[in-house]
């Protein structure tokens, strides 16, 4: 268990709902859910996931901390906003889903090999290097995330896509060498670091 996770468990052992309200983006909305089921019924993921927003919100209120934070549901949300458009209570459901994913990540509770979580990490690392996304390296990093053999297979399977992107000037083979960047990469990295410190202090303060 990560230190932060134990601290949070200790601090909120009585109420996971309070923990969510204090630490998850838009978490204070969870208690407004009236369990009508419209979000669950309108989410295009349908049967494909175990925990619909409706179910997650009930689990939060029922104190099912481990089950919620290690669920892969919030990682599967496609941000289609169907649920927000339909929720009779106006819960910002999509944002809560992402907030939960973010919080689970901070606490080190993301399910192992969760593909969206892996993608997000790769995307972030890629972006942070130059302040711009390097499409080529991003693509390669994703193809090769499960090892070299699988990577070659993935690359071959998507060859046409890659070539089309180059034709449309969406991707450039030269990006492999360094790649384009913003003017002040160091400045961006400093800014992000500062923002992270502020975030950390906030969440540590809550722990």
């Amino acid at each position: 268990m990560s230190d932060l996770n134990s601290a949070m468990t200790e601090r909120y052992h009585n109420s996971f709902l309070k923990e969510v309200e204090a630490n998850v983006e838009e978490g204070e909305w969870v208690k407004m859910c009236m369990q009508c089921g419209v979000c669950a019924g309108s989410c295009p993921l349908g049967n494909a996931w175990e925990h619909t927003p409706q179910k997650l919100f009930m689990m939060i209120r029922a104190g099912k901390r481990e089950a919620v934070l290690s669920s892969d549901a919030m990682w599967m949300c496609t941000s289609c906003y169907n649920c927000i458009a339909r929720c009779p209570r106006g819960l910002p459901i999509t944002h809560i889903m992402h907030g939960l994913a973010h919080y689970a990540k901070r606490l080190g509770l993301v399910p192992k090999n969760q593909p969206t979580a892996q993608f997000s990490q790769i995307f972030w690392d890629n972006l942070m290097k130059k302040g711009r996304v390097n499409e080529l390296k991003l693509g390669l990093a994703i193809y090769f995330k499960d090892g070299f053999g699988q990577g070659i297979k993935n690359a071959l399977a998507n060859k046409q896509l890659g070539q089309n992107m180059m034709k449309a000037k969406r991707m450039n083979a030269m990006e492999f060498f360094g790649g384009h960047s913003i003017k002040d990469t160091g400045g961006l990295q400093k800014m992000i670091k500062k923002a992270q410190e502020i975030e950390d202090a906030k969440i540590q303060g809550n722990s």
Binding site: Q35, C36, G37, V38, A40, G41, S42, Q54, R86
Partner: peptide, 22 residues
Amino acid sequence: SKVASITQNKENSNPVLNGVDT
């Protein structure tokens, strides 16, 4: 359950209620 949507069975014009119960 608040019904999420209604579709129609084209053969007999029966409404089909879709949703998730609580």
